[in-house]
Design a protein around this nucleic acid. Structure first.
Ligand SMILES: [Mn+2]
Ligand SMILES: [Mn+2]
Ligand SMILES: [Zn+2]
Ligand SMILES: [Zn+2]
Lengths: 147, 147
DNA sequence: TCTTGTTTAGGAATCATTCCTATGTAGCAA
DNA sequence: TTGCTACATAGGAATGATTCCTAAACAAGA
């Protein structure tokens, strides 16, 4: 993941998106992260360089990028939304202790066939596997384990 | 799913849970549903028979039942929480139009092996496959399709 | 029956996200 | 280069699901 500012502007133009400093910075922070950050995480990361940045703009920008297909929302749990600029087909493993989300790129998981027992007229567009468990550090300090 | 009131009281006692009319009614409504209802759905369903019921109690009860292992939260999207009393290992298919959640019982999905590329000390406790797409009715009225 | 810890109802609080709106600006065309 | 216009931004208010708080009710065991 090493996109230059020019690459990003290129990408924005290709999608018919205006290129603004805030938008570029937010997308860049997301592309360079593998942590599946929240809107607030991104706000905290970009804020120092753009002190006027509003959290609202982060939400708006993420919405725009999502509609443009540059960003996906990772739907883990019903708590706060987390975002991912990694568009290659992949899956996730979530630590129930620290809520870390790791990418799972195992190609075997991308070859699941349509499941049996579906209504015939249901059309599946994609699927995602979510593994849950506890990472090493969280296993060693079980005090913090969530229910 | 045809649990009598006695069966439910039995089950509660087996888990060390007190048996109250509200708790029984809420669990019964959930057991008899395959719609993965929200707390408010359950409140609306049980309310007519218990006019004094508080939505708060529904949340509290669902929390108790979840901790007791009688109910699972189905983590689809980060919007409102939906609940499931079906404890047999199964997966879900979600219609992105009407947000319906259907059970997927295909046994092949319960035999996925641990994915490659995980940190060695990560311990996976379970996983869930979420298929997304559009059901027949939603495909035929694309006006309502969500982004 | 008495006691006690749990459960309930209802109201207030929280907090992520969305809505509203005035101002700013990117990108295009003259 | 300049001006226009639609889109973007900031900031404050509103929303809505969920949680917190507290007093009263009650299930279950002694
Ligand atoms: Mn990812
Ligand atoms: Mn289910
Ligand atoms: Zn962890
Ligand atoms: Zn549908």
């Amino acid at each position: 993941m090493n996109l230059s500012l020019d690459d990003i502007q290129q990408k924005f133009r290709g999608c018919g998106l205006k290129s603004t400093p805030q938008r570029t910075a937010i997308y860049r922070a997301l592309v360079h992260s593998t942590a599946h950050p929240t809107a607030e995480d991104l706000f905290a990361q970009v804020s120092p360089t753009y002190p006027m940045l509003s959290l609202n703009t982060v939400y708006y920008t993420l919405g725009v990028l999502r509609k443009a297909g540059l960003v996906q929302e990772v739907n883990i749990g019903h708590d706060r939304a987390r975002f991912d600029a990694n568009l290659s087909p992949h899956h996730h493993v979530i630590c129930l202790g620290c809520r870390t989300i790791l990418d799972v790129m195992d190609p075997r998981l991308n070859r699941l066939t349509s499941p049996s027992g579906l209504p015939k007229d249901f059309e599946i567009t994609n699927y995602q596997v979510a593994f849950r468990g506890y990472c090493g550090p969280c296993r060693r300090s079980p005090l913090l384990m969530a229910t």
